[in-house]
């Protein structure tokens, strides 16, 4: 049943690969024609607004749901056919943690570990202990899981993904519900795991989180993949905006427009004027001198570096409403 890893060399450096992957729930097309490539050793951020199909994609990759069309390969093997051989090497947190409330945190992990065919029962206690330690739950290990706080549950979920050394970690919104300290710890943990050579596939809404830890990212919207690639390339795609802080916004807008700056917006509260520089930008020093020469009093002047957030909004649109 299981096929050997792809011999074409692709399997070696691509950990997740999908071709035309699609999933239709009764009415909605949750994922549509997804071509995803996650390089080995990367920390891959999977971005998208609510309802854009991130969790649905992850469920297909983990063999929990059958794609309507297309194919997915994880660690070089087709899913969901090879769950038996692939999933022991994958740790996953899918749509939040799920626990047996009447069991202690420790017993929850023992239960999940007992379901893994490759987990050695002789080392179970030790591995459970070190997983709890890694997420900082040792002190609450014997407490009933129903008495856990949201963040503690999230940590326990993470611990279950760390019961064995993994080649791939799939984490669906891992910092959801964590306190700032916990978020930092998770980021440190992700970096540490990545340093050990584990590929981390991480879905999130928190853009600065992705920007801080991810080497690559993909952006989804309405079930479609909008872009994917190294994080640096993604934010570079959006040009920076010129920002001028001045008590004379009207005059400044006139001057800037005269120098080819487009999409000029004045913030009514701060009086800051921002705009898009032309494709061949003028010398910024000259531009500033021109402003001053025209009698504009300049308090601040500079180009704001495009953040991933700008890139994200530019790609997925400003609208706050989820896609129906």
């Amino acid at each position: 049943m299981d096929q050997p890893p792809a011999a074409d060399g692709q399997g070696a450096d691509v950990v997740i690969e999908t071709r035309g992957l699609a999933k239709q729930y009764r009415g909605t097309l949750a994922v549509d024609g997804l071509d995803l490539q996650v390089p080995r050793g990367s920390v891959f951020g999977f971005l998208g607004p609510n309802g854009s199909g991130k969790t649905t994609t992850i469920r297909m990759l983990m063999g929990l749901i059958e794609p309507t069309a297309g194919s997915a390969r994880v660690l070089g093997r087709p899913m969901p056919r090879s769950t038996r051989s692939v999933l022991p090497k994958v740790g996953a947190l899918i749509e939040g943690p799920a626990l047996y409330g009447f069991l202690s945190g420790q017993d929850n992990l023992i239960r999940i570990d007992a379901a893994d065919p490759t987990a050695d029962p002789r080392t179970r206690k030790a591995r459970v202990g070190s997983a709890l330690d890694r997420v900082g739950l040792t002190a609450a290990a014997r407490k009933k899981a129903k008495a856990y706080s949201l963040g503690m549950k999230q940590r326990l979920g993470l611990a279950s993904a760390l019961l064995q050394p993994r080649e791939l970690l799939v984490l669906d919104e891992p910092t959801n519900g964590l306190d700032p300290q916990g978020m930092r710890e998770i980021r440190a943990l992700v970096r540490e795991l990545a340093g050990d050579g584990t590929t981390v596939f991480l879905s999130s809404h928190l853009l600065d989180e992705i920007e801080q830890v991810c080497s690559h990212a993909a952006v989804m919207a309405r079930g479609r993949l909008i872009t994917q690639g190294p994080v640096a390339d993604l934010s570079a795609g959006t040009r920076g905006r010129l920002a001028v802080t001045t008590p004379d916004p009207a005059r400044a807008t006139e001057v800037l427009a005269g120098h080819g700056v487009t999409d000029l917006v004045t913030d009514p509260h701060t009086g800051e004027v921002t705009g898009e520089l032309p494709a061949e930008p003028p010398d910024l020093a000259e531009l500033n001198a021109a402003l001053v020469a025209a009698g504009v009093r300049v308090r601040g002047f500079g180009v704001q570096r495009a953040s991933l957030e700008d890139a994200f909004v530019a790609l997925t649109g400003e609208g706050f409403d989820v896609a129906g």
Binding site: L64, R84, I94, E95, A115, D116, P117
Partner: peptide, 12 residues
């Protein structure tokens, strides 16, 4: 309770 998905990705 959602524990089914974690048993299946364990993979049970």
């Amino acid at each position: 309770t959602g524990t089914l998905r974690y048993l299946l990705v364990a993979p049970a």
